[in-house]
Simulated assay, not measured.
Amino acid sequence: MFKFSGFKNQFLQPKYWLTWFGLGCLWLLVQLPFPIIRAIGFNAGRLSRPFLKRREAIARKNIQLCFPNNTPADTERLVAENFKSLGMALLETGIAWFWSDRRVRKYFDVEGMENLQRAAAQQRGVMVVGVHFMSLELGGRIMGICQPMMATYRPHNNAMMEWVQTKGRMRSNKAMIDRRNLKGMVSALKKGESVWFAPDQDYGIKGSSFAPFFAVKDVATTNGTFVLSRLSRSALLTVTMVRRADNSGYRLYISPEIENYPTNEAEAAAFTNRIIEHEILRAPEQYLWVHRRFKTRPAGEVSLYV
């Protein structure tokens, strides 16, 4: 019946039937022509706003904090576009998991592929700094089509969904590494592998430094990038994928190798945030603003989300 590695008969139990149904609907939707998929995704995101008021408020607050000079109209336009991207993100996940390589290749181009090839040729590992755009799942698939690599992630709480997402992500990449597995990441980099790592979320106070991020002065920023760089001595560059301005497909941007990376944690955190800011500004409406990026505050400070 199912021959995929890691499949368990328990996934056929009734408690998973609703999940199977949802995955089946997603599979059917992404069989449609891309323009129809795009229209469904954008409209789904737009119509979801009344049901996701808390996430809408978080997105609006994040945008106001990062871009205080925006007019209210600019902010609301960005929130509206962000929810269109949020709706499209679900279908982009289906595209990433279920489309063939041949079909995926029709809808993307790459800028800077030579940068990744040049860094990988040095045989000292490549740490690929990623950013949480809405199309991240599809970006991982496309990145792997260009050059298979390893990626860090948070395992899914649902055992069946963990199997499904891992199978989907492994269609074009080498391996998934638990983001808490520092030893595994360092080992892979020292062996000359390319490892994708996204340091742009709030992982709490432990293992973080406070550094500026856009207009927010003190933002908890993981020291993971600094630690991995110091322990592995790997090359460092960014890979970002965004939807093209005309929505006809996607563009993967690969930066040249990043030089002059700081040698202490505080400076490295600020340096990393500046890199992430640059990538976000490629398409700010497509970034994951619904994440509470500023939930961790320095001691004594009140929450920015009150």
Rank of each mutant, 00 (worst) to 15 (best):
T19N: 02
A269F: 10
P72W: 10
E114K: 15
N264E: 12
R230I: 05
V186H: 08
V131R: 04
E257A: 09
R282Y: 13
I276Y: 08
P72H: 05
F271Q: 05
S85L: 00
W289R: 00
F108Y: 15
S5N: 08
L231R: 14
F210I: 01
I58S: 00
S172L: 07
V129S: 05
L12C: 01
K3N: 01
A89Q: 10
Y287K: 00
F11P: 01
A73Y: 02
C66N: 03
A44H: 04
F271S: 06
R103H: 13
P256N: 03
I63S: 00
K190L: 06
I63D: 00
Q165T: 14
A159F: 02
M143P: 08
T75K: 02
M88K: 13
Q165H: 11
A266K: 12
M161T: 03
G204Q: 05
N69G: 12
R141T: 14
A220N: 11
L23E: 01
G24H: 03
L281V: 06
V104G: 07
H291M: 01
P72C: 08
V227D: 14
D74E: 15
G130E: 06
V216A: 00
V164Q: 09
K3P: 00
L231V: 09
L47F: 15
Q13C: 04
S229E: 06
R282T: 09
R60C: 01
R251T: 14
F67L: 07
S255G: 03
G207R: 10
L236F: 04
I205Y: 15
G168N: 10
M241N: 06
T152E: 14
F98G: 11
L47V: 11
E81L: 12
L65F: 02
V110K: 12
R179N: 12
L182K: 06
G94K: 09
D246N: 09
G87D: 06
R171Y: 03
V126T: 11
E265N: 14
K8S: 02
G224M: 11
H156T: 08
Q123M: 03
W163T: 00
E301Q: 15
A299F: 08
E56W: 03
L237K: 09
F214W: 02
G168L: 05
R180E: 11
S248W: 06
A57H: 12
M88D: 08
S234Q: 09
G45L: 04
F83E: 00
I275N: 11
T19P: 02
Y253M: 08
